[in-house]
């Protein structure tokens, strides 16, 4: 992961924005690891879901550059298992929204042009990549 270049957020702003967007108390995490343990994509992620929470608690803005937040399929397995009741899927969505609402990585449907895209990719992309 590169150092965050595009978005200028302080540690505190990151934490506040994540908590405001997700409605979740990230600081309740005590690192049991069950979110990672049940995550179907964990092996492909650069940060484990648990590490994402730790990055937020540490105020490390480079979490926004992580592959993890885009690999998250919002399957909610982590959410239903979290003993502290943190809806981790919402936290992932909040991180995506921080980027998308600033126009980063967002999908401009009109610019897709004529290229052939599977319908499922189009629908999923529209859902996930539009702020």
């Amino acid at each position: 992961m590169d150092k965050m270049g595009k978005i200028d957020l302080s540690a505190k702003e990151l934490q506040e924005e994540v908590e405001a967007l997700s409605g979740q108390r990230v600081f309740a995490c005590y690192h049991c690891g069950k979110c990672t343990a049940g995550c179907p994509f964990a092996s492909e992620m650069d940060l484990t879901p648990r590490q994402v929470l730790e990055y937020i608690m540490e105020g490390r803005v480079e979490v926004l550059n992580s592959r993890t937040i885009w690999l998250c399929a919002a399957c909610f397995t982590c959410t239903v298992r979290c003993p502290n009741g943190i809806d981790i899927a919402r936290v992932m969505e909040a991180l995506r929204q921080i980027l998308l609402r600033r126009g980063e990585d967002s999908l401009d449907l009109a610019s897709l042009g004529e290229e052939e895209l599977p319908q499922i990719a189009l629908v999923a992309g529209a859902r996930k990549l539009i702020g």
């Binding site: 690192h31 690891g33 069950k34 990672t36 343990a37 964990a42 397995t77 298992r81």
Partner: peptide, 22 residues
Amino acid sequence: KGLPAEVLENSDKSLTLVGENI
């Protein structure tokens, strides 16, 4: 450090634990 999310049983009745070594 790191709890498994679930226990899976194999055909020989052994058990597989998947989780994160934190």
